[in-house]
């Protein structure tokens, strides 16, 4: 049976897990190609105009796969962390695809994965239900899940090393490591799709900086620093962004020179969380420069490059001035 995984949204987080799981159950896994103009066009045609850009891109991918596979794999990932949620658009993702493309319900695997109340039990229940599309044997499903989780751990370990999801998935050569770093904040699906983010990691790399994404920060660190604010948000991915921003702020490493927050224009969580991060950074006595870049289907590459270059210039100027100030102070 051919099962299609659209390359968008949570794909970049769970690809290794989903692929292994489905293949262990005997499915032939098909993924849509990296985002291209055509896929975006399709997404824009079908989606309502106000939904966020990554969701439109996702729908474009789903449409690409629709007639090429037997089953579309769009699980309803309500939550992958206790007491937290994903955003409403991710909660409704299978319904969006079903309604917008008029796909019969039985052609979409839309079982719910929900760790909000039940934690790991909710996770296992979800995968058990997904597995039942392929086999009735529970033991076989649980074994597939174990192998899948192993693949997922390995994938995460690789991400921690600083490899970008896209390079791992498509076996591309990673970018050369630079000595100086910029913290690149944002949702994995925005940071990982180099077509929609106009290859920002490469552009930063060309300016002689490496990026550090939230994926590259230890889970415990992110959670610890998240717990230092009065009330964390209820969106897991946004919480990870807050956690890694605070981690880099409080445990400052000399090579980290600034923050870039990449957000999609209509992203609900980031409209609030971005503000929170910006204000927390500003409150810090000796803070680092912060740039928020908004992206949607109308963003022009030239504008983005200009802002990026201006930001890096400012960052370097500021760094040098603060350095010289400090040294002169020390010598006197």
């Amino acid at each position: 049976m051919k099962v299609g995984i659209p390359r968008g949204l949570l794909f970049y987080r769970f690809y290794a897990l989903w692929k292994t799981f489905l293949e262990e159950l005997g499915a032939e896994v098909v993924t849509s190609p990296p985002t291209n103009k055509n896929i975006i066009q399709q997404g824009l045609t079908y989606a309502v105009e106000e939904i966020c850009f990554p969701a439109k891109v996702f729908l474009g991918h789903a449409l690409y796969l629709k007639d090429r596979v037997d089953l579309l794999f769009i699980p309803r990932v309500v939550s992958f962390h206790r007491k937290e949620y994903n955003c409403p658009k991710i909660l409704a993702l299978p319904d969006l695809a079903r309604n917008l493309f008029s796909i019969p319900g039985e052609r979409i695997i839309d079982d719910e994965i929900n760790m909000r109340e039940e934690g790991m039990r909710g996770w296992q229940k979800g995968f058990l239900n997904i597995g039942k599309h392929f086999t009735t044997k529970e033991s076989k499903i649980m074994k597939a899940l174990q192998l899948a989780e192993k693949a997922y751990k390995e994938y995460q370990t690789n991400l921690k090393q600083g490899i970008l999801p896209e390079d791992l998935i498509d076996h591309k050569n990673p970018l050369p490591l630079r000595e100086r770093k910029i913290v690149l904040l944002g949702h994995t699906y925005l940071l990982s799709d180099s077509y929609i983010n106009m290859n920002i990691a490469k552009k930063v790399n060309d300016l002689n900086y490496s990026v550090i994404t939230p994926d590259m920060v230890e889970e415990e660190k992110k959670r610890y620093y998240l717990s230092t604010i009065p009330k964390p948000s209820f969106w897991t991915i946004s919480n990870e962004i807050i956690g890694s921003a605070l981690y880099h702020l409080k445990e400052r490493k000399a090579e980290v020179r600034g923050f870039i927050h990449l957000v999609s224009f209509e992203c609900g969580p980031d409209s609030l969380v971005g503000e929170l991060i910006e204000r927390l950074l500003k409150r810090e006595k000796e803070s680092l420069p912060y740039l928020r870049l908004e992206i949607d289907e109308h963003t022009g590459e030239a504008g983005l490059v200009t802002r990026l270059e201006a930001f890096v210039d400012m960052m370097e100027w500021r760094y040098k001035n603060i350095e010289s100030h400090v040294s002169s102070f020390a010598s006197s």
Binding site: V48, E50, I51, K89, A92, L96, L100, G268
Partner: peptide
Amino acid sequence: PFTCMPEVVAKSILTT
């Protein structure tokens, strides 16, 4: 409200 997440989901579905 413009960009309201739950209502944008509802809007997508209301077309059907």
